[in-house]
Amino acid sequence: MNRKVLLIFFISLILFCFEKQRIAIFSVQGINVDEGVSTALLMSLSSELTNSKRITNIERAEIEKILKEQAIQLSGCTSIECQVEVGRMLGAEKVILGIISKVEGLYLISVKVVDVTLGSIESEIGPVKAKSVDEFMIVSREIVRKIENNIPVIPEIVGFLGEQPVIDVGRNLGIQIGDVFTVTRIKDVVKDKEGKVIFKNEEVIGKIKVVSVQEEGAVCEIISKLKDIVKGDYARKGEYVGIDRTKVDIEPPLIEHTPIKFARSDKPVKIIAKITDKSGIKEVNIGIKTEEGEQYKLWMKKEKGDIYTLLLPKDYLKYKKIYYEIDAIDMNGNRSTSNDNGNYYEINIKKGKSSKKPFFIIVGSSIVLGGGFTYFILKNTGGELPGLPPRP
């Protein structure tokens, strides 16, 4: 697949956007202020909600239509109970209640964010001060940013580039290279009579890390997985434990190892690593490459505690250099590799001393060097060494 096709495919994926949170603001209650001031603040808040990248602001026309159908006066729907009920009819997840008052020449603005599903106040923001109506837009922007901070960004996996998952959020929502997400899958959903989701059960599938980011999408690599990650799975930033998987280990093994840089050809090399994991270690092996491109796999042996070792035979030390990396797999199939930033560790091998050692024979007060010279003497003396008694 060429680059142009990949780019078109990637752009088509990021045209889909993660589901924004639907929020409705009905009115702003004014205390010791004119109705025009309350309306001005309402318009400012509504405008900032519309401009938000994480929020879908339910339009006034949609709100008024529901109120008209239910024969409810907007001015009379000021209680939490009334606004929650209308919010449910609108399919809103949150409802905002605004309050503005004037004290000693300053406007004090606050909002209550109500969770429609629970029917209770989720958070309160303010009071925020404004000197005049001209500052309402700045104050509204500050309030909406605080509301956004409480909205979790839960991207969806919308496709793949090769084997790499693509999520539908990017720089526009603060996604950066290196961000780690826990992948989940919705298993069970329970809805009420109106079709509103009141309970959902999520299963932890694996973990991914962002490797490339564009404005509205990002490409990730799979760090670990319990099952195959598929289109439609969700990605939650950081750690997340599903309701039915409270003890799931999706973390790869931790490998602690000091690389070996030098060795001698006449001495075996002992490779040592400390490897830990919550679910236990299934397998640890060492991948070896030679200068000639030959590749081998050897298995490390568990010693005391979490220590794994391998005595590298001298047969592998006949080269000037060899290369290796350590690969560990836990009981849940999570894998990690210890190497030099993606490259194999390098061992430089020095030639050791010869294993053929000379020997010495003392002849009288002289020392005769063993080896070929001794053989010459023995051959020419009939097997007798000069200065020594004859053999029996």
Rank of each mutant, 00 (worst) to 15 (best):
R3Q: 14
L6V: 14
L13T: 04
E19N: 13
K20H: 15
Q21Y: 14
A24K: 02
G30V: 04
V33F: 00
D34H: 11
E35D: 15
G36W: 15
L42Q: 12
L42F: 11
L42Y: 13
L42C: 11
L45F: 06
N51D: 14
I58M: 07
E59Y: 15
E59G: 12
K65E: 04
I66L: 02
K68Q: 13
Q70E: 09
A71D: 13
I72Q: 07
G76M: 09
C77T: 08
E81I: 14
G91T: 08
A92I: 02
V103S: 12
E104Q: 12
G105R: 09
G105H: 10
S110K: 13
S110A: 06
G119I: 03
S120E: 15
S120P: 00
A130Y: 00
E135W: 05
I138F: 15
N149G: 13
N150S: 15
F160Y: 03
L161H: 09
E163K: 11
E163V: 14
P165M: 05
V169N: 05
F181Y: 04
F181P: 00
V183R: 06
T184Y: 03
K187P: 04
D188P: 10
V189Y: 08
D192A: 05
D192Y: 07
E194H: 09
E194W: 05
K196P: 12
G206H: 01
G206P: 09
I208L: 07
V213N: 02
E216V: 11
E221M: 08
D228K: 11
E239T: 12
E239N: 15
Y240H: 11
V241Q: 14
D244C: 10
P252S: 05
I255G: 04
H257C: 14
F262N: 07
S265G: 10
K270M: 15
I272H: 09
A273C: 10
G280R: 01
N285W: 12
I286D: 01
E291P: 05
G293V: 03
W299K: 12
K302R: 10
D306A: 10
Y319F: 14
I322V: 06
N332L: 06
G342S: 08
Y344F: 10
Y344K: 11
K350D: 07
G352T: 07
K357C: 11
I361C: 06
V363L: 01
S365R: 01
I367N: 13
F373D: 06
F373T: 14
Y375F: 15
Y375L: 13
I377V: 08
G383R: 03
G383V: 05
P389R: 11
